[in-house]
Design a protein around this nucleic acid. Structure first.
Lengths: 217, 217, 217, 217
DNA sequence: GATGAATGAGCGTTCATTCAT
DNA sequence: AATGAATGAACGCTCATTCAT
């Protein structure tokens, strides 16, 4: 039925896998079901992927590719740190609407299932972001855009933590409930407010201690 | 081999369960293994807990009790918001050393396996913290301790996000790797630095604009 | 709690057992549940009965005692064969109302669960009835009450078959449904009709071939 | 060890299942054992049947199909009621030799294990027979072949009761023992006698009163 | 290659039975 | 003697993985 595993077919398989893994978790997702839903045989899955875990990791990588490109798009172009932060925050919000399942998968690997790969995965996933954030913050500090007494790495880390938590809060069931408990049932309908408050929070964190401050565009 | 299931034994079972769930995740953890490691028979487990999932939830609740009491201890007593924040940060660090597995379990429920319970669990777990944080921030704002243009709920949320991420960063494999990637291999050995930088980050976020500033665009 | 296993207590245990075995079958009935419902500990059950099967057999014997005494009551006193048959039919109907569960148990042993004991049980249960019926029929034949060309044993057998099937048809779920399918939804409300039709059926079977026949009282 | 599950294989599985269920009852029969004896893996069983109960019901239906076709064969073709009855009696005897296990299964469902399905099964199993018998008896009555004062439904019921009991008496351990107790150790070797006596019994029941008699009170 | 039927190890769960108290 | 907590063998069922076609 399937002549060649075209890139398109591969994409379909991965998307199906992501949906299933997001819906049921790594362990409860069923390879046979994924195959059926993808319109391929299990044999094909096992030809292209070592085993269930390997397939899971491929799905994960595929989804992270998208996530990363969203981040990178948002980071490209210049602007103050805060301007960039705003872009990122809005990108995270948009991305959660479009690719919620990717975030769920991302959260999944942070949980127990694949500790074995924690190190490798973290390397693959976090290094770029980490580096870029750190560099931007260092630059901003050099440019006097940001208070001078901070450790760029840790600030980058805290910053990413806020983005990460936001990401999950829009996509993962548990985090979404927590979001509503903290901020009210309707918080998911007011992206604008969330964005502006987070930016206020960040702006302060970045800027405090400067003499003249942070009137971003 | 017969023993009465004392409260102590119950505690041992739960601790064993937490360790296993933390090590292998809800699905891969093996009830028979947990029983054996606890020194009881599976029958006992099924006498005291409805089924695997019920046992998991009991382990989770048990671990959250500890986590919550740590938080509450740190919150008791007065002090400025920042003073309290410091206590919390240090409590999180201490707790991660002593009860890392509890954090792993907590992270696990945020991930795929227990979506079914997301709502209920979030209610049980997050409501207290959420309320307390929000109240403190509102009080601090009333007292002029904190900038006046913020939404206390969202600030409480961002604040908790930072603590949550820190918690996981000390305990969960993936988050720990990520922590090291962002902040260097040795970051886990310098709690002092992490605490002080996070407090700086928070202080700014709280305090900014108190005198004249914070007219964001 | 229980000082001595009085006859009364024993009766209660057996009744509870019968109810459970009737409700769930030999295998699905739960000894621990039976103990709890009887208000005794499992230990007591295992003191007085060898094991589950032994307990089942005791319940069975207990219930058959009642069944048998009903039959014997109905058989005592003289009368024509048909008069006796009428008593039996009505006794079966009455008994099904009062002791339906006994019949269910009786049916149960005829099914797979205890083939091991089929022979022993049949001996214990059927021999008296069989003998009495056969004797009555032989007497009746000798007395010219009944056609002369029959084999008393087989006639006794067919006669008991009809009673047995009737017994189950009033008490056992499956047989009751079958009864309704054959004779209409309301057949269980018209014992009189069933009795009189069965007696007609029997009367004919007994009497046919006599020169002057069977005008029973 | 891989084989395609041909229709033949399916038949083999069902036959094995019937044998196991007949030998040990629904609950004690072991699915893994059945699979092994059938020469297939448990997986196959669970591919073709929902679960143990579903498999049991399939075995049952399969066996009833045979039973029913035997009955129907015996009923096809005309003849007096008694001629038909004779065919049926002999068919029952023959069938018991060839498919004793089927009868055991049939008996099993009438007992405790499957009360849940009593209604549905009874409908599926008994309705045809019931209707046919009732119709034949009604026709026979109309034709003056049979006494006029009977209720065809109840007579059909009694008639089927006799056949049912005979069926079990040839196949099910308990009923077989009972048969011997009533009619002697060698009764199973003299089908001819049993048939002729039963026919006498039936003939009387049907025919009585045709000339002058049967004015019951 | 691609297929998907078949495999069977593995695990959750039950409950008859035991025996320390 | 009576208790009932504890035991653990046993079994139903799932699903990742294989391999004959």
């Amino acid at each position: 039925m399937l002549k060649k595993l075209s890139g398109e077919k591969l994409g379909e398989i991965l998307e199906t896998g992501i949906a299933e893994f997001a819906a049921h978790g790594l362990d409860r997702a069923n390879i046979n079901v994924i195959a059926k839903k993808s319109g391929v045989s299990v044999g094909v899955l096992y030809k292209y992927f070592e085993n269930k875990e390997g397939f899971f990791l491929s799905c994960l990588r595929y989804s992270l590719e998208v996530l990363r490109s969203v981040i990178e798009d948002a980071m490209s172009g210049g602007g103050t740190l805060l301007a960039r932060a705003e872009k990122l925050v809005r990108a995270v919000q948009r991305c959660a609407r479009e690719h919620g399942t990717y975030n769920v998968m991302y959260n999944e690997i942070t949980a127990g299932a694949s500790q074995k790969y924690a190190q490798v995965l973290a390397q693959q996933i976090e290094s770029i972001t980490s580096e870029v954030y750190t560099r931007f913050i260092a630059e901003a500090r050099a440019a006097g855009d940001i208070r001078g007494d901070i450790d760029p790495k840790l600030f980058a880390f805290f910053f990413d933590n806020l983005l990460l938590a936001l990401q999950f809060s829009y996509s993962c069931d548990y985090y979404r409930e927590r979001f509503k408990i903290f901020c009210g049932e309707d918080i998911l309908d007011d992206d604008e407010k969330v964005a502006s408050e987070l930016l206020k929070f960040l702006q302060s964190a970045f800027a405090l201690g400067q003499t003249e401050i942070s009137q971003e565009g």
